[in-house]
């Protein structure tokens, strides 16, 4: 099966040129990442802030320049695509952003916002677009008269539904959602998750969900990739990753999820320290300064992502549960 969207050895770096009084700096926000989104699957990318999740999402959409590697859409290298092919890709791969207060143009009424992709891709007539907007508003649980109002007249959850309706408008095959829930209340989060799940079943959508909310990821994802400092350190099915995490970082993330019922926190599980500066990543395995299982090997040699079991890849010299 051809992957819908695939990153191969993808590297994205941000930098500034050297000035008169300071050297130029390069940050590799995404380092040699290979990841594939299959049609119809829900793939979650988890990691701390600064791990490069958002940059990965934007690079997959071609919204940031790629420093190395390739992105393939339906098997075609996106760098080699014509303008028309790129436009066609933008129609079927849609994005939902983290901040529903920033991702909707405050000057446009909601109807125009949702119809914008239809407008851009010249789908339908004016009348059919209006119908489609009403249909989409209904689909995400908003009343049809919302079309005439402005984004600021809606709550955060309602706005995220509007953003979702916009993403659905051109009939996409995949939705890339960048922390779609983090700006929302918990009750609205679950509504959104149920909505996303229902639409997936109905429309056969693939989702790439960027998140740091492991509970939500557990609920919706098929596969999970863990990112640390621009690299993918573990990829597995959601069950395998949650029951037998192989990378110490994944294990630490899972241990940090608050649980109801035990009444007390297990001490010593929380990860110490902060994520290192991507300007000066540690040598060897980028995680070794914070890793409880680090050895001298980890400080010198970066582990490659390799298959631990079928469908379970990990980049660690000393994977958990393997020794």
């Amino acid at each position: 099966m051809t992957a819908l969207l695939e990153a191969i050895d993808l590297t994205v770096s941000f930098g500034d040129r050297a000035g008169w009084f300071r050297p130029g700096q390069q940050v590799q926000a995404v380092r040699a990442v290979s990841l594939a989104l299959q049609p119809g699957e829900v793939l979650a990318v988890v990691g701390e802030s600064g791990s490069g999740k958002t940059t990965l999402a934007r690079a997959l959409l071609g919204m940031v320049p790629i420093a190395g590697g390739t992105v393939r859409f339906d098997g075609c290298d996106t760098a080699a695509m014509t303008a028309a092919q790129t436009l066609a890709m933008r129609r079927v791969v849609q994005m939902v952003f983290q901040d529903p207060f920033g991702s909707l143009d405050p000057r446009l009424p909601v109807g125009a916002i949702i119809a914008e992709p239809l407008d851009i891709h010249r789908i339908g007539t004016k009348a059919s677009r209006r119908e489609r907007v009403a249909e989409l508003l209904d689909l995400v649980g908003l009343s049809p008269d919302a079309a005439g109002r402005y984004p600021h007249q809606f709550s955060g959850g309602q706005r995220q539904r509007i953003a979702f309706a916009r993403a659905l408008a051109p009939g996409p095959r995949a939705i890339i959602a960048d922390e779609p829930l983090s700006a929302l209340d918990v009750s609205i989060q679950s509504q959104m998750l149920n909505l996303a799940a229902a639409l997936r079943a109905r429309l056969g959508l693939a989702y790439l969900i960027i998140s740091h909310d492991l509970a939500a990821v557990h609920h919706v994802a098929d596969r999970v990739a863990t990112m640390y400092l621009g690299r993918i350190v573990e990829v597995a099915s959601v069950d395998a990753l949650f029951s037998t995490p192989a990378h110490p970082y994944t294990a630490a993330l899972l241990a940090a999820v608050p649980r109801i019922g035990t009444g007390k926190r297990v001490p010593g599980d929380a990860l110490g320290g902060d994520i290192p500066s991507p300007l000066a990543p540690p040598p060897g395995c980028a995680f070794h300064p914070r890793c409880p299982a680090a050895t001298s090997l980890c400080a010198t040699e970066a582990p490659a992502l390799r298959a631990l079991r079928a469908g379970h890849d990990v980049a660690c010299h000393h994977p958990l549960g393997a020794a």
């Binding site: 919204m63 436009l87 933008r90 849609q94 952003f97 983290q98 992709p117 851009i120 891709h121 051109p170």
Partner: peptide
């Protein structure tokens, strides 16, 4: 730099459209 401009570009909006529909009305 605002996300709604990024959103429009991610949908395939042309520079002309982004300027005309999103930037200038917000700079009015």
């Amino acid at each position: 730099e605002r996300e709604f401009v990024l959103a429009a570009r991610a949908q395939g909006a042309s520079s002309w459209r982004v300027l005309w529909v999103h930037v200038l009305p917000n700079a009015v």
